[in-house]
Design a binder for these strands. Structure first.
Lengths: 124, 124
DNA sequence: CGTATGAGTTAATTATAGCTAACCATATCT
DNA sequence: AGATATGGTTAGCTATAATTAACTCATACG
């Protein structure tokens, strides 16, 4: 089963939230994404059933190996793309929003090519 | 009503087909996009009702002012993005597919920034 | 003890956007 | 005239992914 764009978004959000908070619950994801609780609840059920996340008895969410791989891939894309758009003069908010949509539709090949190109421009 | 991604795709396809053929029918769009006839039929009905295209009595399709503006914007994005990805070393087929998805999710601001940047790299 | 709050869930609805099945109209071929 | 092919349409189905309404459950307040 091919992973869906929405699933990628949820996994990335879990990663981001677990970087700044220590524990992540469905409600935190709902707040972060401005989604209604049931939307997240259903999505988490799916991610759980497909082995992308685990939930302990207190309903705290952790990424599995498989889920983390996707989350980190998305996060890397997001970071690189938004930094690059900002570097090109795009407003930070707009750059972030755009990166957030582009990251899900890029092939691995194109991303690698962009990455190589960008590293020749931004020094960090 | 905000124009949908699928609508942008149809309008761009109509523009492309009308560049190479002289007349465009629903069936041509279906063949180009590898969609079933009814999918296109319904989509054309929508585009017609919202003033993006017109169909004469022989069912040949033309873009309205409004429809053409969107089609040309998409076409420009598509062209620039795919040329650029190819320039960065991405396989032509992959570049085209990626451009096709990115073109619909980019803000005007980001596209303009990318365009400016690309024009400093590719000379054509 | 009872009620309010917070978190999670289920069920039903909505929108987008594709599909197949079935049908109609026109034109062409024998 | 009858069969076939082409193009278009309608109706109904499917999948994804969000929503609201209504429910459960546990904890905390007073």
């Amino acid at each position: 089963m091919k992973i869906q764009e929405s699933a990628e978004m949820y996994l990335e959000t879990i990663l981001i939230l677990s970087k700044k908070n220590h524990q992540v619950r469905s409600i935190d994801i709902a707040n972060e994404l401005n989604y209604a609780k049931p939307s997240v609840s259903v999505a988490m059920k799916n991610l759980r059933e497909n082995g992308y996340i685990e939930m302990d008895s207190d309903l705290y969410i952790t990424l599995t190996e498989k889920g983390r791989a996707i989350a980190e891939e998305m996060y890397e894309r997001h970071t690189l793309l938004s930094e690059w758009l900002i570097f090109l003069g795009v407003d930070k908010k707009v750059a972030t929003e755009d990166a957030c949509r582009i990251e899900h539709v890029l092939s691995a090949e194109s991303f690698e090519a962009i990455k190589k190109h960008v590293h020749g421009h931004i020094s960090n």
